[in-house]
Write a protein that binds this DNA or RNA. Structure first.
Lengths: 219, 219
DNA sequence: TTATAAACAGACCGGTTGTCCTGTTTTGTC
DNA sequence: GACAAAACAGGACAACCGGTCTGTTTATAA
């Protein structure tokens, strides 16, 4: 009669589940619109457990930013760009990959980093700095890739920092519009505009020999 | 002894005061973080008056979007671009004007449209459509300006819709980063990147004859 | 086993939120 | 002046929020 359930402590798993749900809810509803009770219910976690791993809601959000949002930027942007034959080609590939994924998915929830950045940057300096660090790493990775391309004999006309800033800004802004219009088309429009601005070189989307081994240049 | 204050009905003024405060608070703190009690206190308005003009918080936000945010985009972007000698020059001027204003101001609160778009687009379809309309008008104004430039013998190599999308995206994304880093420098970086991509033409920031009368092309 | 701390459960609380409601005052109209 | 509608005042309220608290169970180490 008594269910006699045995409890199993799984701190890492529980922490992960909470982060999963929080990451998803912050992305879909935002920080303020996500209540802890909602998160607890969705994750199947009690208040005591949640508070044990994340003493405050702010601590939870900070963990989402540093452990999940940063990882998302790394995986969807930095790694592919570093693995590409050139920075320009990497940026192009990411734009198209994201656009394709969004179109297949059918809806646009936006860029996790930008979503949280807009809502939390002015609310708390700790949030702001954590988010700014991710933006900076993103830009730096692209800029460093351009510099490495140059050493390999790549196109040497564009300023690395400027192009990196523009790439990140164009993507962020395009995702903002895509989210608002629920249409990923604007991502492709921005990409084409970026491509049509090829500096001096003529080959627009022309095929280029692809490097076999992607080379890493950042520790 | 009795203060005997006479009340004066001023519906338009009261509505305006509420919108002023709401616009400011939504910009600085966001929609969810702005409580109606805060707004009432800041505007010196009672709950009854507020409820009379704006039955719900959503109605207030919708009014802010349609009456204030749309106007802000019109005044800081569309009007200057239409008045400029070319779309490209107009975009450049706006980027620099905003950057200069932010640097003088000392802090960055971000783009009102993007701020609200990120927080509200997924929350409510009515919000989303109102915000999407403003984005669309913004892009259309720039694209139409490019088409008009072309008829006047301007540079004819760039695709109007693509360039407009890129300009808006780059600005939105740059403002996002500027807000997060509290540094308007990235705006200038993006502008320079945009300028360095001059298609074929050589004159980078070269002086051009300025049209005396700005011409309007949208009703 | 026993002690010790970590991991978890679940109730509880003060404060706040947005909204509603009942009045009162002002304004416009006949 | 009479009357109706708009404009405004201000309290009340239920729902909910995030955080805290006490207590129990599980794992770890001596």
């Amino acid at each position: 009669m008594a269910p006699r359930k045995k409890r199993t402590n799984d701190p890492e798993g529980m922490r992960r589940r909470v982060l999963d749900v929080a990451e998803d809810s912050f992305q879909a509803r935002g920080y303020h619109a996500s209540s802890l009770s909602d998160l607890m219910a969705a994750a199947g976690v009690t208040g005591g457990a949640l508070h044990h791993h994340f003493p405050t809601k702010k601590a939870l959000a900070l963990a989402v930013i540093e452990e999940r949002v940063a990882t998302a930027v790394q995986e969807t942007w930095i790694d592919p760009v570093l693995a590409a034959s050139s920075a320009r080609e990497g940026v192009r590939a990411v734009f198209e990959a994201v656009a394709a994924e969004l179109e297949q998915q059918g809806y646009v929830r936006g860029c996790p980093l930008n979503n949280l950045a807009h809502e939390l940057s002015l609310a708390d300096d700790e949030f702001r700095l954590a988010l700014a660090r991710i933006f900076a790493g993103w830009r730096r990775a692209i800029a460093d890739k351009i510099r490495a391309d140059r050493l390999d004999g790549g196109e040497g006309r564009i300023d690395p920092d400027r192009f990196a800033a523009l790439a990140v800004a164009a993507y962020s802004g395009a995702m903002s519009m895509a989210k608002t219009s629920q249409d990923a088309g604007v991502l492709r429009e921005c990409l084409r505009a970026l491509e049509s601005f090829e500096p001096s070189q003529s080959g627009l989307t022309a095929k280029r020999r692809r490097r076999v081994l992607p080379r890493r240049m950042i520790g």
